[in-house]
Nucleic acid binder design. Sequence first.
DNA 1: CATTTAAAATGAGTCATACTCATCACTATA
DNA 2: TATAGTGATGAGTATGACTCATTTTAAATG
Lengths: 223, 223
Amino acid sequence: MAETQRQRLEAREETILAAATAVFGESGVDGARMAEIARRADVAEGTVYLYYKNKHELLEAVVDRFWRELTKGAIAAISEGANVNQQLHELASYHLQSLIDDFKIVEITSRARMRHGEPVRQLPQIREYVRVFDGIMQRGIDLREFSADIAIWQIRDVFYGTLEHSARTLVLRDQVFDPLVIDHLMRLFEQYRPSLETDKTSGLQSSEIMQALSRIETKLSQF
Amino acid sequence: MAETQRQRLEAREETILAAATAVFGESGVDGARMAEIARRADVAEGTVYLYYKNKHELLEAVVDRFWRELTKGAIAAISEGANVNQQLHELASYHLQSLIDDFKIVEITSRARMRHGEPVRQLPQIREYVRVFDGIMQRGIDLREFSADIAIWQIRDVFYGTLEHSARTLVLRDQVFDPLVIDHLMRLFEQYRPSLETDKTSGLQSSEIMQALSRIETKLSQF
DNA sequence: CATTTAAAATGAGTCATACTCATCACTATA
DNA sequence: TATAGTGATGAGTATGACTCATTTTAAATG
C-alpha cells in the first residue's frame, strides 16, 4: 500500500536522523563518521545519501529538528494563565536547562549556520524559537507591565545572549543549573517597567524626593 | 648567527600564521586548504607541519593570537583616567565593533574550543580578555559606584553574552555598529548602583514616598 | 676557504573518509 | 507470474590532511 510505503520511508528517515543526532552528539561534527551513522541506523552508507544530500545537510536536519522540539518544549513549559513575569521566568529556566542538557547539540548549531558557500544565515527554526519570547514580551507591553518604548529585539539579545553565555560558563565549570542566573536576569527586567513619575535614573530623583520630604517633615514637626 | 636564525624562524612562523588567518577568515575552517595556506605563506605544505602539528593546532594558534591582540586593543581603548561608567562604555563599544569587524574569526573561535578528544575547554586567551572587564567592575565596586553584593561573573555573562548575541543579530542584518545597543546595555548597569535608602524595587520606593506623604497629610489635617 | 654536520625545507606518496554509481532487491500493479 | 519502477547496496573514486625519505641551507670547525 502507498500509505504504508510512505510511512516506511518516513520511519527510515527518522531512524537515520536519530542515529545522526546521537553520533554528532557523541563525537562532534568532525568526529562523526557517515559510516557509523549508517551502521547505527542499520542501513548501507549509500542509503543515507538518498535521504540527505551530504553530511552538512544531515547536520542541518539534526539541528533543525532539535530547535523545533525545543520550541514545542518551551511552549509547553510556560503556564497559560500566568502573569508575564512568571512566564518569562519559566521560559528562562527552560531555556537555560535545555542549553545545559543538550550542550553538545547547541554547540553544533553554529556549524549548521555556516554553509560552505559563505553568507552566514540565521536558521529558520531558531527564528521560530525566539518568537516565543517575543510573544510574551509583547503581551507584557500590551498589559502595561512593560514600558511601551522598549525595543523588543534589544531585550531579546540580552535575554538569549545572557542565558547562552551563562550556560557556557556553567557547563565549563560544573555542568549544573544555577537558579541565581535566572533571578539575576529577571531582576534586570525590572528596568523595563513603566515608571510612573520618574525617568531613567530613579536613584537620583527619589533621593531628591526623599530629601524634600524630610525638609517638609522637619518643618512640620516644629509646630 | 644564532640570533638571526631564530628571528628568521619566528618570521616564518608569523608568515604562516598570517596566511592561515587570511584563509580561515575567507573560506572558513572546512573550506580552508592546508595547501592554500602553504602557498600563500610561500612555503611547501610539509613546512607548515614543522611549525604546527596539524590543522587544528594551527587554528588554535590563529584564534589565540586574535584574542591576544583583542586584549591589547581593549586595554588601549579604555581611557586611563575616566570614570568607571565611561570605561565600561568604551569597552562595550570596542568589543561590539571588534565582533562585527572580525565576525568570521570570532565564529571560528568556537571551533578552536572543541578539540577532537572531547572535553570542551575555555581558551586561556579569552580568560585573559575578560579580565579587562573584571578589572573595571572591581574598581567600580571599590569606588562604591557599584553595589558590593553583586556577583561579577553574572554581570560578565550579561555583558559579553548580550554583546555577542547583538553582534550576531547586527551582522545577520546589515553589518553595522549600532550605538543603541551600547546605550541599552549601559542602562542595565544602573541596576547595580548601590541604593542609598532602599532595596531593589523602585516600586517599593514610591510606596515609601506615598507613606511619607500620608504621614504629612495626616499631620497637616490636624491643623 | 673547504669540509663536515646538523637543522630546516621539500613535495611526492600514503591514508582516511565523504561521496558516487553500476548493480541488485523488493514491492506493487497488470 | 511477469514486469516496471523505486529503493537499497557497497565497492570504487576523489579529495585533502598528513608523512617521510630526500634535498637544501646554514652554522661550525680546521
